[in-house]
Nucleic acid binder design. Structure first.
Lengths: 331, 331
DNA sequence: CTCCTCTACTGTCACGTGTCAGTTGGGAGG
DNA sequence: CCTCCCAACTGACACGTGACAGTAGAGGAG
């Protein structure tokens, strides 16, 4: 007794006593076909009885393209903050009658193999793709839309978090600001614009040039590494009194380092992060941070994506991602 | 000038001056077919020139099943810890010549629509599926493999983290232990076994029954909520001196609450988390936590999955997930 | 010359779907 | 009674692939 075969529209047709075409018309609700209610019900009942599910591959083949959107994340560790973006995008794409799935990989064996098992009608990239992956998508005629957080669309976008951090710190009276960026190769496209934004804010507020240092990110980030930088900044003739950090992880490590060094936060050293991660409310003091309006961001990305899917010419008008400062105890 | 069509194996055949069958044999490297080297090279060159990519949908249709594995995550917020599991599984699945993609959703509009756009040969579930989703997969004849962290395979698995936490605290001389669990509906399947594990460890160490309390998780978790519980436990005639927390987020909030109440950690109150999240090294003091051996876990899950894919009878021998205690400053 | 074998291919089918162009049967109008 | 029309359906094709069965032609043995 072998496991029963999955039922097809032919099975449904046979059971309802109609042709396969009629089944297709009923199940796809085609308004231009005259189907009497009695037949309609018979087909629907048959489909229900056999628990018919259309075959996605056959559908995609027939239609010439799938209704699948692939979110590609190469190398960016997916924290809760990014996870919120994924959730929001999933909802947005579902509303459009398509489905979003995420492919992510930190290791080798990139996008290529995945694309032989999957043909999305569109890809959305969180970070940017390397040239090999980009060529792959071009060959397969799959359009790629960049989420644009790195400022690939408008360089000004990427500067916003850094600008907000320093503008806020300047408003609090800080003069010499330290920027704790990351040396990570993959994250550079996010990190560099933020530093530029911080510099611009300092300039605009009439502050001296901020001091910039790099620490590792991800698992490699250690409190000790931050401590070394803070010690250097403290011993400066004009000591740093406030730090704008690359993200909340770096900010948390900075608070920990300051605490270990006997520096009070925010009294001796103010700290600002980016991402509004959940844990940022549980540090002591809780972190002031820069938060992305996730639903609005997802809507914006999807609007651009649909523009591409609909084959419309030109670029979709691009709204800058909306960031805001979340004021907590660390500044 | 319309955008050129994606090339098919027929295009390659035409360009190489052979039949489509020959192209298929060459590109799939079939050893049982005699193809002279000259022809082989001609076909490969043609494929390269046209940057041919096989159509995944057609392949899946012809093969009767895709080579796509769907990781389903309904409701569990995906932190860096889980993200590591995803990465490890992606690598494992890729090694087997298949591809893993993640579908996740917190909102409504469940798995159903996604399955009409996608037909995986297998699904792996992180949490468990609700009955509706389970029925959906059964109808579509898609096998589902549970990752098993919730103890769906062996109830003992789910108890391990709780057991490790309390066993460790007992070894440090703590007698009255508090268990800070979660009231979240979706997480119950993880939370309850952990509490059971904690109880068992207390029993085995000759400790009195632990005190158990629930706090919200996710965005709803606040330091204040934890503070309320800690105050109650402190005022107990036999005060709680150590807390086993549901995860590192709860543990971080507990450290923050204790700090706000003037309790020294670990002097007045020891705290242990679960998950070894990255931020756990940046709290003050850094968190003692329970860590999962992610690569081993991914290998185990994939071994069970392959057992199912190969259609082998019975159950794959199941290894318990390997957890270990990471000793830091909070206990 | 015939028969057989072996290499190097090719023609054709099937997978499950959506859709177009037909085709049937019955009723209304002349 | 014949014609026309329309509602209600059906037959057949195409999508791109993998694989089976089949075949043309060359070459060797008898």
């Amino acid at each position: 007794m072998e496991r029963s075969r999955r039922s097809t529209s032919a099975d449904v047709a046979r059971r309802a006593g109609v042709s396969r075409a009629t089944v297709s018309y009923v199940l796809n609700g085609r308004a231009d076909q005259a189907i009497p209610e009695s037949t309609r019900q018979r087909v629907l009942a048959a489909a229900r009885d056999l628990s018919y599910t259309p075959n996605a591959a056959a559908r995609a083949l027939r239609a010439g393209e799938s209704r699948l959107v692939l979110l590609v994340n190469e190398g960016i560790p997916l924290g809760p903050a990014m996870s919120r973006v994924v959730d929001a995008l999933t909802a947005e794409v579902a509303r459009a009658g398509r489905s979003l799935v995420l492919w992510q990989s930190t290791g080798p064996g990139g996008l290529g193999p995945a694309l032989t098992h999957l043909d999305p009608c569109l890809t959305i990239t969180l970070g940017s793709l390397d040239d090999a992956a980009r060529a792959l998508l071009a060959d397969a005629r799959i359009p790629a839309v960049d989420a644009g957080l790195g400022g690939d669309l408008d360089p000004a976008d990427g500067e916003i978090p850094g600008w907000l951090q320093v503008d806020h710190l300047a408003g609090r009276g800080h003069r010499h600001i330290g920027v704790l960026s990351t040396g990570d190769r993959v994250l550079r496209r996010f990190a560099e614009p933020r530093v530029a934004g911080a510099r611009r804010a300092a300039r605009e507020s009439g502050l001296p040039e901020p001091s910039v240092a790099q620490v590792p990110t991800g698992e490699a980030l250690s409190v000790g590494a931050v401590e070394t930088v803070l010690a250097r900044w403290r011993d400066d003739p004009d000591p740093v009194t406030a730090v704008a950090c690359y993200n909340d992880y770096v900010a948390a490590a900075t608070v920990a380092a300051a605490t270990r060094m006997g520096l009070a936060v925010p009294g001796d050293l103010a700290v600002v992060g980016v991402d509004n991660e959940q844990f940022s409310r549980y540090t002591s003091p809780p972190l002031t941070t820069v938060s992305l309006d996730t639903p609005a961001f997802a809507r914006e990305v999807w609007a651009r994506a649909q523009h591409v899917l609909d084959g419309l010419p030109g670029e979709h008008p691009h709204d800058a991602p909306r960031f805001s400062l979340v004021l907590r105890g660390s500044s």
